[in-house]
């Protein structure tokens, strides 16, 4: 069995998610190749070749591939899929965008968000925002999967391998979709989905000004990303892309700090896989305390300044 892992990178560096997807792939086979696509990404391919366990790196470069147009990426990956039994794609926004296309082009199912490899044909994936886990078995000859990278450890050593890098031609771009622009968030804070620490605020904050004045400094002190409950987003205290929950982002940081969040079912679905959960709420009966490792029953107005002080 041979597996093709699609690398995830930011244009300059390989993301950790690539290494984690490699871990999942190596549980299926020792014949694992990595595809790096983009433009001006030779150094990323070289970095991928050094990851231990990689057999070969395929490098495909074009201006179109740089824009991550799903149609183009899917055409490239589907063309290469003939040589592989499994295509494993990190479940990033780019991966989720093109992976179903590869599956449809090959007329196979998509195994989405694989979080455990049981055997070569059996996988565990989350449904209902992780409130249930589904074990599925496939009999399809070719498998296309996205990998929930938070469920796998980055196992490969960065300097352990010496795979060769082979260039593959980029397919001609399809005319129907064109890139217009992009707007990368310029922030010193980490991305919500990838942050090691997340500080989230809830409706108790009462206003956007208060949210910014309380949550932002604490997040900055911890080098954390900022999240919010749906109630806080609906009330306009925080932008929609801060939303953690079943209908927002599902996060699993090492430390999640919930400030003034009661803990509605839909919020818990988005953060309950965090390693350590801290809840600060003045209502001792708030459901958030039922999932919190450390609960502080206190008004955030005094608790957060105290916490800032205690952090030094």
């Amino acid at each position: 069995m041979a597996v093709l892992v699609i690398a995830d990178h930011d244009g300059a560096h390989l993301r950790d998610t690539t290494n984690k997807t490699l871990t999942a792939a190596l549980q299926l086979s020792t014949d694992v190749d990595v595809l790096v696509y983009g433009d001006g990404v030779q150094s990323i391919a070289d970095a991928a070749a050094k990851l231990s366990g990689v057999r070969k790196v395929l490098l495909s470069q074009s201006a179109d591939l740089k824009q991550d147009i799903a149609e183009d990426v899917a055409a490239l990956v589907t063309g290469l899929a003939a040589n592989y039994d499994v295509v494993a794609i990190p479940a990033s926004s780019a991966g989720k965008n093109f992976a179903p296309r590869v599956a449809a082009l090959l007329d196979v199912s998509l195994l989405s968000d694989v979080m455990e490899v049981v055997d070569a044909n059996t996988f565990v994936r989350p449904i209902y925002a992780g409130n249930a886990l589904e074990t599925v078995q496939t009999s399809e000859a070719k498998k296309v999967m996205t990998v929930r990278t938070t469920a796998f450890k980055a196992a490969a050593e960065a300097e352990g391998g010496s795979a060769t890098v082979e260039t593959v031609a980029a397919p001609a771009s399809k005319a129907g979709t064109r890139f217009i622009s992009e707007e990368k968030v310029v922030s010193d804070r980490p991305e919500l989905g990838a942050a090691k620490i997340v500080v989230s605020g809830g409706r108790a904050l009462g206003s956007k000004e208060e949210f910014d004045a309380v949550i932002d400094p604490l997040a900055d002190k911890l080098g954390a990303a900022v999240g919010a409950s749906r109630a806080a987003v609906d009330a306009g205290y925080a932008p929609n892309d801060y939303q953690v929950g079943q209908t927002g982002k599902v996060v699993a940081p090492a430390l999640y700090i919930a400030v003034g969040i009661s803990g509605a079912i839909q919020h818990l679905a988005g953060m309950k896989d965090s390693k350590v959960i801290v809840a600060i709420n003045k209502d001792p009966e708030a459901p958030i305390f039922s999932v919190a490792d450390y609960g502080l029953v206190a008004d955030y107005k005094t608790a957060v300044p105290d916490l800032m002080k205690a952090l030094g």
Partner: peptide, 15 residues
């Protein structure tokens, strides 16, 4: 909405 920001695409109809 993509990881790390926003991307704007033009898609010809039907889409």
């Amino acid at each position: 909405e993509v990881d790390g920001g926003l991307q704007t695409l033009g898609v010809k109809l039907p889409a």
